[in-house]
Simulated assay, not measured.
Amino acid sequence: MSDPDLIDPIRRAQRDQDRAVAEKRRGTGATLALIGTLGWLIVLPPLAGLFLGRWLDRTSDGRFWTLSLLFTGVFVGCWAAWRRIDEGHHDD
């Protein structure tokens, strides 16, 4: 006879241990790919905002488009990187 009060915590601990082992098996290539992806996610939106802002400043009389779109790009890039990192923490 088995006691369910003892079996359930043991099964839960085994499942947690198996999950920890599986998560640690991420290879060097996958880690480098993640770092590269985060770099592109953080750098490209501010650059796009900078170029778009410079173009708008040249075509209009205002001077605030470059700075405002640069900050918007920084915000969007950091938000996208945060979401990319957060994807790995949710269990399916």
Results as ranks from 00 to 15, higher is better:
1 M>Q: 12
1 M>E: 14
6 L>M: 12
7 I>V: 15
8 D>V: 08
9 P>Q: 01
9 P>N: 02
11 R>D: 15
11 R>Q: 11
13 A>Q: 07
14 Q>H: 04
16 D>V: 06
17 Q>Y: 12
17 Q>E: 09
17 Q>D: 10
19 R>A: 10
23 E>G: 13
24 K>V: 07
24 K>P: 02
26 R>I: 09
28 T>D: 05
30 A>T: 10
33 A>W: 06
36 G>I: 04
36 G>P: 01
38 L>N: 06
39 G>L: 13
39 G>K: 02
40 W>A: 15
41 L>I: 09
44 L>K: 04
45 P>R: 01
45 P>S: 01
50 L>G: 02
52 L>P: 00
53 G>C: 01
55 W>I: 05
55 W>R: 06
57 D>Q: 09
57 D>V: 09
58 R>F: 13
59 T>K: 10
61 D>N: 15
61 D>F: 14
62 G>P: 05
63 R>T: 14
64 F>T: 12
65 W>S: 05
65 W>R: 06
65 W>I: 03
66 T>L: 14
67 L>F: 14
70 L>K: 00
70 L>T: 06
72 T>S: 10
75 F>L: 10
76 V>W: 03
76 V>C: 05
80 A>P: 03
81 A>V: 03
82 W>I: 06
83 R>W: 04
84 R>C: 02
85 I>E: 08
85 I>W: 06
86 D>C: 07
87 E>W: 03
87 E>N: 02
88 G>L: 05
88 G>P: 01
89 H>W: 10
89 H>V: 12
90 H>T: 13
90 H>L: 15
91 D>S: 13
92 D>Y: 00
92 D>V: 08
